[in-house]
Amino acid sequence: MPGGAGPLVLVEGLSFQRGSRTVFDSLDISMAKGEITAVLGPSGVGKTTLLKLIGGELRPDRGRVVVGGDEVHRLSRSRLYAMRRRMGVLFQAGALFTDLDVFDNVAFPLREHTRLSEELIRNIVLLKLEAVGLRNARHLWPRELSGGMARRVALARAIALDPEIVLYDEPLAGQDPISAGMLVALMRQLNDSLGLTSIVVTHDVEEIAGIADTMHVLSGGRCIASGPPEEIRGSAEPSVRQFIQGLPDGPVPFHFPGPPIAEDLLGMAAGGPAAAARA
């Protein structure tokens, strides 16, 4: 196992609410330097939210996030930006700049943060696009890309500056088996050849188990299991097993929390429109 030089990203006692809904309740996770850490969990559990908290886009209600020794939410804006410069983020929807073409999207961070010549920038951009298989799509506009292609361009952009940490939000969603396999290999290769630390948020257990060094499973605002993939997959813990094996019934609810369906449907039949209006 590569790296292992201690935690680079540390989440301690993290609590976070969206309105009245508690997304995290005293969450603890530590992510080791040089590793690929996968964060798994059902849709809506707060995986994207966790990445936004790590990147300093959202503020926790309680607890702290430490990246490379700095407490993210205590940094001044300029220190926060200095930290983000060492970080590449792949957004769940890609978030490409719609007024720039594919090439300029990938070149954007290079032009903003370096004084490299246009020729050098061109070479770097083409190499990054080559790595995600889209070198020949460089003249396309974001609106001309499929969802999976847009996400791969966004990945090329996220790694343009050779960051130390890459946060991937669902890199495999919407990818065909060939690109998914290629992306997984790319993530592993980036991690090993550049000595990156990767944090991958996903619900694709099978694909990610092949490359992750450590996996964390989130449920109900907490981390319910952590460990190497074999251990997680072999876990006897019912809620972990349910999620890993994709079973519909078990301790992890498929449904967004709230009143049961009987109340919503039968409540209307029993109580009439007045009761329905209350719901």
């Binding site: 886009e57 490409l96 954007f108 903003e112 943060h113």
Partner: peptide, 11 residues
């Protein structure tokens, strides 16, 4: 999320 993405790129 283009603005957020830009912010995460330290711009």
């Amino acid at each position: 999320e283009q603005l957020a993405a830009m912010g995460m790129m330290a711009v």
